[in-house]
């Protein structure tokens, strides 16, 4: 596997999302927030511009110990000693890229169906992208594959990592994770945010919560998705009290509402948490 390392939060550049801020400051903020895989994607830059950006990001990611790949351009990747490339379905075929890059460098492939995923795995891809899960401005016009494909990939793609991509935000990450993803990729949600670092932390927190829930429960089957304070969240909790406990709220002075009605605190333990429930936990406001 050479330069490949496992990762959880994959971030791709998108300079059009942050006018007025430099590529370096935005990507460094993402790295500070915990992004642990970086891709340079710029379909509009000249090769020279791309090379300059790649050099800068190579240096930056190296200081964070994070793998760095270049979209679509093995020559640029080699020139800056990037860890590899990421290829779309219409880019250079995987075998051709491999012959240029050698066995150690990373080659990732975008896939939009389980057939493409199987093919990429068979040909020796180091990881695959699975998406777009939701409609996205980064890939306009491409139909979203929905979380159904994420679930398929989770069931079938076992020998290499897959990362869910496309329109993922902290608010909808729970749904994607509940479908079986363990790694997320974000573009606009991170680089388009005024605070990329915070968004990365929130995404990682979602991933962490989900993996804890899976460890606590009996696997993804035991997870139900509920909406907690406006965010989709996979949980193994069977009751409102268990959900509050998982969120560290069971002992706090908190008002709980489920599906539009306040649930008395004494009934939290006996209130079942159905899949799809909408729950609001609100800290009691005490000033007067």
């Amino acid at each position: 596997m050479g330069r490949m390392k496992d990762f959880r939060l994959y971030v791709i550049t998108g300079e059009n999302y942050h006018p007025g801020r430099t590529l370096r400051e935005v990507m460094e903020a993402a790295l500070r927030g915990g992004a642990d895989f970086l891709q340079l994607r710029d379909k509009n830059a000249s090769k020279r511009e791309l090379l300059e950006k790649a050099k800068m990001l190579r240096e930056l990611t190296r200081s964070y110990g994070v793998p760095f790949v270049v979209n679509d351009h093995p020559d640029v990747a080699l020139a800056v000693d990037a860890d590899g490339v990421h290829l779309g379905q219409d880019d250079l075929p995987l075998a051709a890229a491999r012959s240029l890059l050698g066995p150690d460098r990373i080659i990732g492939i975008s896939t939009h169906s389980i057939e493409q995923a199987r093919e990429a795995q068979r040909q020796g891809a180091d990881y695959i992208g699975v998406g777009p899960v939701f409609p996205t401005g980064t890939k306009p016009g491409r139909a979203a594959v929905t979380t159904a494909y994420v679930a398929q990939a989770a069931a079938e793609i076992r020998s290499i990592p897959f990362v869910a991509i496309g329109g993922i935000t902290p608010d909808n990450a729970g749904e994607v994770l509940a479908a079986g993803a363990t790694r997320l990729c974000a573009v606009s949600a991170v680089v388009g945010s005024p605070d990329p670092e915070a968004v990365c932390r929130r995404l990682l927190a979602r991933i962490e919560e989900c993996s804890e829930a899976k460890a606590a429960g009996a696997g993804p089957d035991a997870l139900r998705t509920v909406t907690v304070n406006g965010q989709a969240k996979p949980t193994s909790a069977g009751s409102l009290w268990e959900l509050a406990a998982q969120l560290g709220l069971a002992e706090k002075r908190v008002v709980a509402e489920m599906n539009g009605a306040i649930v008395p605190k004494a009934e939290w333990r006996t209130t079942a948490l159905p899949a799809g429930a909408t729950v609001e936990f609100v800290h009691f406001v005490g000033g007067g």
Binding site: L249, E251, K252, R253, V254, V255, I262, P264, K265, A266, H283, F284, V285, G286, G287, G288
Partner: peptide, 26 residues
């Protein structure tokens, strides 16, 4: 309607989650 004790819990020690004017302004 239910009483306040039912809605927010009665344990007087559970105060760390309260949002007050002195803590966060108003």
């Amino acid at each position: 309607t239910a009483c306040l004790r039912c809605l927010i819990g009665g344990d007087n020690a559970e105060t760390d989650g309260d949002r007050t004017c002195d803590a966060v302004g108003v």
